[in-house]
Simulated assay, not measured.
Amino acid sequence: MDNETAGTRLPDMVDIPRNIRRRREQLGMTRAQVCARAGLPPKWLVDLEIGDAPLTRATLGILAAALKTNVGALMSGAFDAPEAGVPDTRSLIAMSEKECYARLATHEVGRLAGNLHHTPWVLPVNYVLDGNEIVFTTDPDSPLAHVRGTTAFEVDDVDRYARLGWSVLVVGVVEPVTDPVEIARLTEAGAGTWPARREELWLRIHPGRVTGRRLRPGPARR
């Protein structure tokens, strides 16, 4: 996977605190002034600037607004962009199949689309990757139990504060898993559903097409 992992993790936590401090000093603002704007405790910003405090994507978005800049600038250190009120540009980047699988491996819940009695539905399902295939279990009475043939499975991650995110779409064929040895192996690996059930149906998606896109921050418009 390349280093443009917008929506999955923050860049180097050495660079970001340095960029935050540089931007604050560029504006001639004290830590207290920044924290008053952001609604954050001043002691936390002191610790952050020396690399001793955690930073989430949501908090980074709040800090960007308080520092009259954007998330992309705080991540890159490029502060020659317009200040508050002018949104930074974003671009959708197509992900390779390898990157799609890497992101699928970081999550446990996706959405499966199907059709029952001529009524379309989309339901959440917790899953695991078994090689390049997606495995999940369901209750015999669930609409998921009737899924067969080609279907669509989607997983995404969105941070609305930082305006970062990604999505992966898997189009493949669903088949039941009936081999007791295979079921025992999957059970041992912890592939069962979150709610405990006495009777579970095991299903496997054999991917035919795996595509994904991520939202990459870009420099602000001039």
Rank of each mutant, 00 (worst) to 15 (best):
T211S: 10
H118K: 13
W202G: 06
N132Q: 15
R21S: 12
E133G: 02
I93E: 15
A32N: 11
D139K: 07
G110M: 02
V168R: 04
A36F: 08
D130I: 09
V170A: 08
W44R: 10
A36R: 15
R22F: 01
A162P: 09
A58V: 12
R216H: 04
G7H: 00
A184K: 11
M95Q: 03
A191P: 01
Y127W: 05
M1Q: 04
Q33P: 01
S167Q: 07
Y161S: 15
A189W: 11
H206T: 10
V177H: 08
R21V: 08
R22N: 07
G114A: 06
S167N: 12
H206P: 10
V210N: 02
R22T: 04
K43I: 07
V174D: 10
P41A: 06
L203R: 12
M95D: 02
T30C: 07
A81W: 04
G218E: 01
E182V: 03
Y101Q: 11
R22H: 06
P207Q: 09
P143Q: 10
G131F: 05
G192S: 07
R24N: 03
R23S: 01
L169V: 14
Q33I: 02
G149E: 11
T178P: 04
P219R: 08
N3Y: 08
Q26N: 01
A94R: 05
I62K: 10
W194G: 09
R213S: 08
E97N: 11
T193L: 06
I20Q: 00
G192Y: 01
E199G: 02
I50D: 14
P195E: 06
R18S: 00
G7P: 00
P41M: 01
Y161V: 14
V171S: 09
T178V: 12
P143M: 09
L45E: 09
E49L: 03
V46S: 15
A65L: 10
V46E: 13
L74C: 08
V210A: 03
L129D: 06
W166T: 14
L40D: 02
E4S: 02
K68H: 12
D80T: 03
A162D: 10
D130T: 14
V34F: 05
R21F: 05
P41Q: 07
D141E: 13
I183F: 02
L55R: 00
A84N: 13
V122I: 05
N126E: 11
H118C: 13
A38R: 08
C35M: 05
V71N: 02
P219F: 02
A113Q: 06
T56E: 02
L10W: 03
V155K: 08
I183A: 09
E175R: 10
R21K: 12
N132R: 15
V125L: 11
I62M: 11
V125N: 07
G85S: 07
R18A: 02
V158K: 00
L169H: 13
V174I: 14
